[in-house]
Amino acid sequence: MNMLDQIIQEASTSSIPVADVLRKMLVMSYRIKSQETVTWVKHELDGYPRDESVRLPTYRGPFTLPVHGTYSGYYGNSRTGPLGRHGVPEKYISAMFEGPLTEPIMELEALAAGENDPGFQWSPVLIGQWNVWEDEGRVPRFEGMNLISAHATLPRSKVKGVIDSIRNNALTFALELQSSYPQAGETDGPTVQDAGVQRVVSVMITNVFGTGNNVAIGDGNTMNLTVQPGDLEGLLDAAAKLGLDEKARDELVETVTGDAGPEEKRSRLAAFGERVKQGGVSLTGNITANIAAAKILELGTQFLGG
């Protein structure tokens, strides 16, 4: 049983922890030399930063959270009730009513198996701000009472959904690779330098992160671009559609038409594609680095005759 078979079998078995599946995914990602999936798997295993330095997968939120507050008034009176977004300034919405799941997969599985729904308490600063809005008439209030605490809750069903999404993405990725590259993940197997493997990686990253400037995206036009062997005009036209500016197109031409032999040209093409993926080559338009790099590698390979 090879690496892909193991991942498919374990990802299909609900009793096997997703962390075990991800560790095999990590091995496979290193072997296919896919930095994108290595980074994704590491973050799923270790957790995501609680800031904007790394984009979260779409399935990790942020989620809209129900919030319940506790009020206190004269003579020790108290009551609880739901708090809504109406009247709350937009810049406070995420801190009060939304929450992402950034925890490592093992913590998510522990939360899903627990008896209580996870959540968080509003900070004293947010409590004080809410009471100011009540005094200003921005938000509803209980007459003669002030908010003293508020708790945002995330239903465990959401946590279970995140876990299932991670498992399903791992399974789908392994199945897609296996359909065309059954030796992917084996020692000396195919890597992302093969345009087909890179396409599978790009689609997987798109499924995980959605569309955006830092992940692979594309549209029907870019995905259907093809170049005939030796068709330099067609290659340049396709490169322009992918967002390469004139300087980058000239560099691509030099890469695939220089005096080097066929293998050296392919090596240089792979290096050029890696620079595009890492942001070393400027792109214009809405096509992002990952998909542009994959398509450039594919088109350059077609130009060179496969």
Rank of each mutant, 00 (worst) to 15 (best):
residue 108 L to D: 06
residue 161 G to K: 15
residue 153 T to V: 15
residue 172 T to A: 11
residue 136 E to A: 15
residue 203 V to P: 00
residue 133 W to H: 08
residue 154 L to C: 14
residue 115 E to V: 10
residue 197 V to L: 04
residue 172 T to E: 13
residue 206 T to M: 09
residue 186 E to T: 12
residue 179 S to P: 03
residue 107 E to V: 15
residue 131 N to W: 07
residue 136 E to Y: 12
residue 184 A to S: 09
residue 164 D to N: 08
residue 150 A to V: 09
residue 116 N to W: 08
residue 153 T to D: 01
residue 197 V to M: 00
residue 150 A to H: 04
residue 145 M to K: 04
residue 111 L to R: 07
residue 201 V to H: 03
residue 109 E to T: 02
residue 180 S to F: 08
residue 183 Q to Y: 12
residue 151 H to M: 14
residue 138 R to F: 11
residue 145 M to N: 08
residue 165 S to M: 02
residue 211 T to R: 04
residue 170 A to G: 10
residue 180 S to N: 12
residue 109 E to S: 05
residue 117 D to Y: 06
residue 147 L to I: 09
residue 202 S to T: 07
residue 139 V to H: 10
residue 197 V to E: 03
residue 198 Q to V: 00
residue 187 T to R: 10
residue 154 L to A: 10
residue 159 V to F: 07
residue 179 S to Y: 02
residue 139 V to S: 11
residue 159 V to K: 03
residue 186 E to K: 06
residue 164 D to L: 09
residue 118 P to T: 02
residue 171 L to W: 08
residue 119 G to Y: 02
residue 159 V to D: 04
residue 178 Q to D: 15
residue 132 V to A: 09
residue 127 I to D: 04
residue 163 I to K: 06
residue 188 D to V: 08
residue 107 E to K: 13
residue 118 P to Y: 01
residue 166 I to E: 09
residue 179 S to Q: 13
residue 161 G to V: 05
